[in-house]
């Protein structure tokens, strides 16, 4: 049996909101250590890797490994029924064909229960764990979201170049071109505003703006985003959870 209780429904809401426009359904793999998901979008360009560690939960038990096939649009509708501050418990028997979702209002004496029909999903998984990294940028997630939105107005591609002391985001299209350069910065009073850039090799990569638009839907999950880049390889965009992460692997665009 699986039972996981979130201190606040808002966390699961944000996770599902960040995933649902990229993949319509995916398997949630539940083990005694927590819940993980790997899912690829229809065009096979963007991969989501989610890990919700056991410590994320107020209470967690999973007696036997369970795979829950979940339609994210339907899941989003049901968890949207709870208030952000409610306790949210997900519950499934070992051979369940539904997932129980329970909201508890912390002030009123009110409990709401829902059942979500589970799906049988054939997923083919990719081996993404052994990636090397040439450059790592950590910056405020809201800043990264704004850069992606602003550059998308110019072009369907965003070029990221990283040198020793700066990262440059640029786009060029029919109406014109634009660029944003960021440099490392330590803000002691507001550590969430700090920017770090570490580099083994210079980077010059281009990514599709529409996929970056999907990635920045995770912005509310974390004040920071870490971008790991390797020349001629997919970029990794990581939003940390209180215990775990939501990562996106995005295949680059190459010159023909």
């Amino acid at each position: 049996m699986l039972e996981g209780k979130f201190e606040e429904a808002s966390l699961l809401k944000k996770i599902v909101e960040a995933m649902k426009d990229c993949v319509s359904s995916c398997n949630f793999n539940c083990t005694e250590n927590g819940i993980s998901v790997q899912a690829v979008d229809n065009s096979r360009v963007l991969l989501i890797s989610l890990l919700i560690e056991k410590d994320t939960f107020e209470e967690y038990r999973c007696d036997r490994n369970i795979t829950l096939g979940i339609g994210l649009g339907s899941f989003s509708k049901i968890i949207g029924n709870g208030a952000n501050s409610d306790y949210l418990t997900i519950q499934a028997e070992d051979d369940a064909d539904t997932l129980g979702i329970i909201f508890e209002d912390k002030v009123k004496d009110k409990i709401s229960e829902y059942n979500l029909k589970l799906l049988d999903i054939d997923a083919d998984l990719l081996e993404v764990d052994a990636m090397e990294t040439d450059a790592t940028i950590t910056l405020p997630s809201a800043d990264f979201a704004k850069i992606c939105k602003d550059m998308k107005t110019l072009s369907e591609s965003l070029q990221i170049t990283v040198t020793k002391d700066s990262a440059k985001f640029q786009s060029a299209g029919e109406i014109g071109s634009g660029s944003v350069v960021i440099k490392p910065k330590t803000d002691i009073d507001h550590p969430e505003e700090s920017i770090t850039i570490s580099l083994d090799k210079p980077i010059d990569l281009s990514f599709g703006s529409k996929y970056l638009s999907d990635i920045i839907k995770a912005t509310s999950l974390s004040q920071k985003v870490t971008i790991k880049l390797t020349e001629d390889s997919p970029g990794v965009f990581e939003y940390k959870l209180p215990s775990g992460y939501l990562r996106f692997y995005l295949a680059p665009k190459f010159d023909e």
Binding site: L46, L47, L126, E127, G208, A251
Partner: peptide, 14 residues
């Protein structure tokens, strides 16, 4: 012109 690659170009199937 840049061509969009897919993840299968980089990662083996598990």
């Amino acid at each position: 012109f840049k061509k969009q690659k897919t993840l299968s170009d980089f990662f083996p199937a598990k």
